[in-house]
Nucleic acid binder design. Structure first.
Lengths: 227, 227
DNA sequence: CCTACCGATCGGTAGG
DNA sequence: CCTACCGATCGGTAGG
């Protein structure tokens, strides 16, 4: 059965594949390789090898190495942003919505560790104009958190001495740091992490007399609703 | 006065310098270049150019590019750790000490933005054994925060439903994220950032009836001490 | 620290 | 997608 030693099918398990399918493969492999070696440390040769293609053949699908990174970054950002925007749009007061966003974002990050890590690590490898193109002028990500804190403050759920900008940056930090230590199968599940972080965050913000997670509520009225 | 065009002093402003002085220069320049281009993106040529030396001459001071990164990382870590260890050792209850550590650590990071950024960005460029050599088996950094939260909980200053591991990772995240957005001369000073973050953190942890920053204190006794 | 050099690899291209 | 190739640059070294 051994092939008569010749051309065609020479590389990997590599049969010729439809363009879209190959692109999807290339995209996935590039994400992996950038994750493992960093953008600068990764070579197109690495990627081609893993696909069973020749390096030059990658240029059938891409224009440059930088473009490939750009595609990966854009897609990761698009998905991540869509996720938190959807979560933030669900019903509830700003603090309840913030809780949902935190829990859902941590979960999403943990389930997309590879892409998330590339996104958070390799942004500086892109020229600044292309960074801005991905992030959007006003850092869409950050804005979601900022907006919720601001609204919470306006409704009196959040302490009046809190600076919404600093608070949202603090929240973003604790949440985005997770990719650095989370490992699947480790001590904590994404859900545990997200819920505990949300709990910490709400406690850090909440005004006295407001129960984190409860609707607006008039100033005091402590134990009576609970049994 | 123009030199008779010849050898000696050929490069940069480069006169021959004592070994220690050159090493300090090399160290500083390497940190800068790694900051600007990332470790993989930086070349020894870049570094040599900025020093006014030939690339090969760098090997008079280093054994390899990797060793150079290792030296930078070790030194940044050493200084940062010394700083928080000193802060954590000052008198006060665990929450007061945590406040000091947060404020002082943010300040230190902001004043050493270049080194801090390299440290937090390029660790993965080192082989794992060398990473472990720098961080220490039990991640000394993280341990300082963990220890304070644990002690705070044991003394009843911190809510009993808090997981010290997750809480300290959350704190570390919000604090270490600062290097990503802080810029000297920007909207906030390091002191403002540190103090606001510390305020958020203490509020996130503190048990009901405990005033963040006060000594242990028996359960209640609210307004009477304050005027 | 310089001179002079090396093998390996890099991203990328022309032409089919 | 492969063949065949390019110029540039990489980290690193021998010898002084």
């Amino acid at each position: 059965m051994r092939q008569p030693a010749g051309r065609a099918e020479r590389r990997g398990g590599g049969s010729r594949k439809p363009r879209e399918e190959r692109w999807a493969e290339l995209f996935a492999v590039a994400t992996e390789v950038f994750y493992e070696k960093g953008y600068e440390g990764a070579s197109l040769q690495d990627i081609a090898d893993r696909l069973g293609l020749l390096k030059g053949s990658l240029y059938y699908y891409i224009h440059s190495k930088e473009d490939l990174l750009f595609e990966v970054m854009s897609e990761v950002h698009r998905q991540g942003l869509a996720n938190i925007v959807e979560l933030a749009s669900r019903p509830g007061d700003p603090l309840q919505r913030l809780r949902n966003v935190v829990v859902g974002h941590v979960d999403h990050m943990c389930r997309n560790l590879t892409g998330t890590t590339v996104f958070l690590h390799e942004m500086a490898a892109l020229p600044e104009p292309r960074q801005a193109e991905i992030l959007g002028g006003e850092h869409a990500y950050r804005s979601v958190f900022l907006d919720l804190v601001q609204k919470g403050k306006a409704e009196g759920l959040v302490r009046q001495d809190i600076d919404p900008k600093l608070a949202s940056l603090s929240i973003l930090g604790s949440v985005n740091w997770v990719y650095r230590w989370f490992r699947p199968g480790g001590e904590f599940t994404p859900k545990q992490i997200g819920e505990h972080f949300a709990d910490l965050i709400l406690h850090s913000l909440v005004a006295e007399g407001v129960q984190p997670g409860e609707p607006a509520a008039k100033p005091k009225r402590a134990k009576e609703t609970k049994n």
